[in-house]
């Protein structure tokens, strides 16, 4: 009974999970370097940035929106934070400023979409360019490098052998999963994506909550910026290019629909892991970077195609 219910409600996620496990199995057979504790921890560390960006993206996509500006916001938040950190101010202040920049850009996206009535694609396309340009202007195009050990520990330290970026990622997932499933904010996100008019007619302030959703997306981009900056010991204004595509891919592989109303963070996490494992494995197998791109693209298409055919079968 429980298993059946699990399948019914989380079939899509289980499917992706099965895919991930099979991939792990295949890679374990192909290369001796894959299934080692240190390699798996490396993968978990590597996926953290994309996985965190994908959290905000998933919530946006659940509301039937899209955010193309995540990579640029990441870069902008990163360089602003880095500049503050270099002024010998306390680390928490730097973090707060960086996260604030991310949230601010996200909220601006949200306002353009709700008050300005721009399609999300257009509004965030504009922001993608504005935030990127902002990052370049702010730094004159140069990376901001060299931070205190305390800050770098956010990427380099471990707790019980688990890398800090992975722990931060898990924290973000748990918090946002609870936000989506246990708060009215989450319910409204699904409702807006499923039927915005009916949600409005149920007395919900759609504009407010949609704006907040984009603010959240800006926040997760900024959290990813913290990890990236600490990891590279440098904040680059050109960081995060095409990260939006990776985040969308993880979200879609994880079962969210671009039409909105559907998607879970569990699915997205599995999607991000699948992409990370695939990239890691292809490196270990010495596959050329060109072929890697072909394979990743194929996986996205296969995952969504399977999902669509099976949805039709069910009807």
């Amino acid at each position: 009974m429980n298993f059946k219910k699990l399948l019914l409600h989380h079939g899509r996620q289980l499917g992706t999970l099965a895919g991930l496990l099979l991939l792990v199995l295949a890679l374990s057979l192909r290369t001796p370097y894959f299934l080692t504790v240190s390699n798996l921890l490396t993968v978990l560390e590597q996926v953290s940035i994309n996985a965190i960006v994908a959290v905000g993206m998933t919530v946006v996509i659940i509301t039937a929106g899209i955010d193309l500006s995540v990579g640029s916001i990441l870069a902008f938040a990163g360089v602003v934070m880095a500049t503050v950190l270099q002024k010998d101010l306390p680390v928490p202040l730097g973090l707060a400023v960086g996260l604030g920049v991310g949230v601010g850009c996200g909220l601006l996206n949200g306002l353009l979409i709700t008050i300005g009535r721009l399609p999300p694609f257009i509004a965030t396309l504009g922001m993608m360019s504005i935030a990127r340009g902002g990052a370049l202007l702010f730094t004159n195009g140069r990376p901001v490098s060299g931070f205190s050990d305390g800050f770098r520990a956010l990427a380099t330290s471990q707790f019980l052998y688990i890398p800090m970026p992975t722990l931060i990622m898990l924290g973000v997932y748990v918090a946002c999963h609870l936000l989506l499933t246990r708060t009215r904010f989450g319910l409204y996100a699904y409702a807006m994506g499923g039927n915005e008019q009916a949600t409005h007619l149920s007395g919900i302030n759609v504009r407010l909550h949609k704006t907040l959703v984009y603010g959240l997306c800006g926040l997760t981009s900024a959290i990813a910026a913290v990890i990236l900056t600490a990891r590279l010991n440098s904040a680059q204004p050109i960081a995060g290019m095409t990260y939006e595509l990776d985040a969308i891919a993880a979200t879609v592989i994880g079962g969210a629909s671009l039409m909105g109303g559907q998607g879970t963070l569990v699915g997205t996490l599995i999607g991000a892991l699948l992409m990370g494992v695939l990239r890691n494995g292809l490196n270990l197998l010495e596959v050329s970077s060109f072929l890697q791109q072909v394979i990743i693209g194929a996986v996205i298409i296969v995952a969504v195609l399977l999902d669509m055919t099976l949805k039709q079968n069910r009807k």
Binding site: G15, T16, L22, R30, L282
Partner: peptide, 22 residues
């Protein structure tokens, strides 16, 4: 569906490996 997805991934992963066995 799960099996198909896994199969597809497996094939992709293995066909990608056309180098000498590390």
């Amino acid at each position: 569906r799960a099996a198909l997805l896994g199969l597809a991934l497996g094939i992709l992963a293995t066909t990608g490996c056309n180098r000498t066995e590390p």
